[in-house]
């Protein structure tokens, strides 16, 4: 609520006409999907930040005597894994990793892709044609295959997984950004600013950029969810996080042999992944509903 007040105060007072942010926030608050998603993400974010304080155990400490303890037994809320590590603590620390991967790889993808798309869309010409050709070729590789190949080349590690996921996501941001820039470039307000002598850089980053943020933020939100899934897949294939890191995909991978004996070891890290990704997908869907004027009746 505090932001909304300050936001309205900044405006030259037009009574009854709230700022775009206030209007956005008001309609977002009415969107159940977005609010549920935001709630889930908030919980995961809190767990990620305060994992050391919240986790009952050290995620790496092995208590061999307590191997494969089922949930709700002996003080292990979610049980233990095959090495006697507390599942709850590992999942909590895994939240950190997944959130970081999601944010970092989407930042890589959206910054690089956004910049490329902005330049290509704004200047057009030969630069546009070459970059879009490259983007087309990148899109000719199925997404997960591209990620796997890049990380296989860079070497299996968590950092490389983030880079690979980021690179694989570049094309989509580049395309979205280019599309919105092309649409905005010819609009009246940009032409007006240009006729007033605004420079290219100014036009691109202070006039056009704010108007491309809506589609970009929808894609970025959905992209974080997808990045979390991709990183889990990479770790599952042994190409991402390495043991004993408490990464969700890696936890699922190392549980493969326990499908017959310990359901919780298999199920729980997947459930955590599912809920986190669901949060981002819900928020992304909600954002799209709110930000896409075509859907507003």
């Amino acid at each position: 609520m505090a932001e909304s007040v300050s936001a309205t105060n900044e405006l030259p007072s037009i009574p009854g006409d709230p700022s775009p942010f206030v209007r956005f926030w008001t309609s977002l608050r009415k969107n159940n999907s977005a609010m549920t998603g935001l709630g889930i993400i908030a919980v995961f974010a809190v767990v990620a930040v305060f994992a050391p304080a919240l986790a009952p155990y050290d995620p790496l400490i092995q208590i061999i005597g307590d191997r494969l303890t089922p949930p709700l037994t002996d003080g292990y809320f979610l049980g233990t894994d095959d090495l006697g590590r507390d599942m709850l603590s590992r999942i909590m620390y895994g939240t950190r990793i997944s959130m970081i991967i999601g944010v970092v790889s989407v930042s890589i993808g959206s910054l690089v892709g956004g910049l490329v798309g902005m330049l290509a869309g704004y200047f057009g010409g030969i630069f546009d044609r070459i970059t879009m050709r490259i983007i087309d070729i990148m899109l000719a590789f199925p997404y997960i295959l591209l990620t796997i190949v890049i990380v296989a080349l860079l070497g299996a590690s968590l950092v490389n997984a983030m880079i690979a996921i980021g690179i694989s996501q570049i094309p989509r941001y580049a395309r979205i950004m280019r599309g919105s820039v092309l649409a905005e470039k010819e609009s009246d307000y940009v032409l007006a600013e240009r006729s007033l002598g605004a420079k290219d850089g100014e036009l691109m980053f202070s006039t056009i950029l704010p108007n491309t943020l809506a589609p970009m933020s929808v894609q970025a939100t959905l992209g974080i969810g997808e990045a979390i899934l991709s990183s889990a897949a990479l770790s599952f294939l042994g190409l991402g996080a390495q043991p004993p890191t408490p990464e969700w995909g890696l936890m699922i991978a190392s549980s493969k042999e326990f499908v017959t004996s310990a359901w919780w070891v298999v199920t729980l890290p997947g459930v955590a992944t599912l809920i986190a990704v669901l949060g981002f997908n819900l928020l992304g869907d909600g954002l799209r509903d709110v930000l896409d004027p075509r859907l507003q009746e």
């Binding site: 995909g249 699922i252 499908v259 992944t273 990704v277 669901l278």
Partner: peptide
């Protein structure tokens, strides 16, 4: 459907093996 798109495939595969095979 929303849950479906939010799941890791390999996890779903494992859970299905756990339920339907094992």
């Amino acid at each position: 459907a929303l849950i479906g798109v939010s799941m890791p495939v390999f996890w779903l595969a494992l859970v299905m093996i756990m339920i339907f095979s094992v």
